[in-house]
């Protein structure tokens, strides 16, 4: 390690940068109780969602038409829906889809956006073309685009994830590109170029690590938004297959009973709101600790 310290002085390797960020995060968690709160709530939600199959609840898709629309009871804590399915089981299992959709969209949008943004930021010719495409994509309201995509491709969890990812990419690209443009002219990058370092190496070694902190923050917001948008898609009838319980689906199916069996919308609604609230709070905390100067980007 010591013989390479010279190298590190100029520009620490990616692993070190990540460790540094991780340390900063751990530190932030200690200092920032709201962020800790967000993380704890999220963990509880994830445990409830992914642990649901082991709680001895009725199968979430098990219908029993004769027992439909029951009020909460010892057998069905949240009552039953219009097909006589256990609402508690559905709401807990529903968390799986919502969390998977949220996390996948965040991961995919940031990684695709990162690659495109890095390339666009570093190559002027690519930049001109790519950014026009991104502008065009960004001018289509994201929810409309997602609805159209799911409606046309057919409803499946996979399609919902892709459809929610596509409209997010341009925003990530812009973010990454702005960081790259800022760094491109800085001394250490210019120096690396002068030394004949390959473009790939510059991009991945010197520039990419700097985009990580804002990207992580951005990812949390994308994740929160994707969880809500999944619900919107289901609500207008272009979401995940209704047989699979997701919070959006449960609420969409329950909308008819809003005035009598409020629980069908309320329980998943509360779980969803708490989850999104927790993700946002966590994201806010991350932003404050990773990059206090960074503004909220949409």
């Amino acid at each position: 390690m010591t013989d390479r310290s010279h190298d590190r002085l100029q520009d620490p390797p990616l692993s070190a940068r990540l460790t540094e960020n991780a340390v900063a995060m751990a530190d932030a968690l200690r200092r920032n109780p709201t962020m800790l709160f967000g993380l704890v709530v999220l963990t509880v939600m994830a445990l409830l969602a992914f642990g649901a199959p082991y709680f001895g609840l009725p199968e979430p898709m098990r219908q029993s038409p004769i027992d439909r629309l029951q009020d909460p009871s010892a057998a069905h804590w949240f009552g039953t829906d219009m097909y006589g399915r256990d609402l508690l089981s559905r709401v807990l299992h529903g968390g799986q889809i919502s969390l998977v959709v949220g996390l996948s969209v965040a991961a995919m949008a940031t990684s695709v956006g990162l690659v495109i943004g890095l390339v666009a930021g570093f190559n002027r010719r690519v930049d001109a073309i790519v950014m026009r495409f991104m502008d065009a994509l960004m001018s289509i309201p994201s929810i409309l685009l997602a609805i159209a995509l799911v409606a046309l491709w057919g409803s499946s969890v996979q399609n919902v994830i892709i459809a929610l990812t596509i409209p997010e990419v341009p925003r990530v690209v812009r973010l990454v590109r702005s960081v790259v443009l800022m760094l491109r002219d800085q001394t250490f990058v210019q120096a690396a170029i002068a030394c004949g370092t390959s473009t790939t190496r510059i991009l991945f070694r010197h520039i990419m690590p700097n985009t990580i902190p804002p990207l992580i923050v951005q990812a949390t917001y994308i994740c929160a938004q994707a969880v809500i948008f999944e619900a919107y898609l289901s609500f207008v009838g272009a979401g995940t297959p209704p047989e699979i319980p997701s919070w959006g689906n449960i609420m969409a199916e329950g909308r008819m009973f809003f005035f009598q069996n409020f629980g069908i919308i309320m329980y998943p609604g509360i779980f969803l709101a708490i989850t999104v609230f927790a993700i946002n709070t966590f994201g806010d905390g991350l932003r404050d600790s990773l990059d206090p100067r960074m503004k909220r980007r949409i």
Partner: peptide, 23 residues
Amino acid sequence: LVTAQALREIGMNVRLAALDWAT
């Protein structure tokens, strides 16, 4: 939904293809 459950009950491998009426 009811058909899917009944057929699964007798051992059929059922896939519900969700779509809208027009489709």
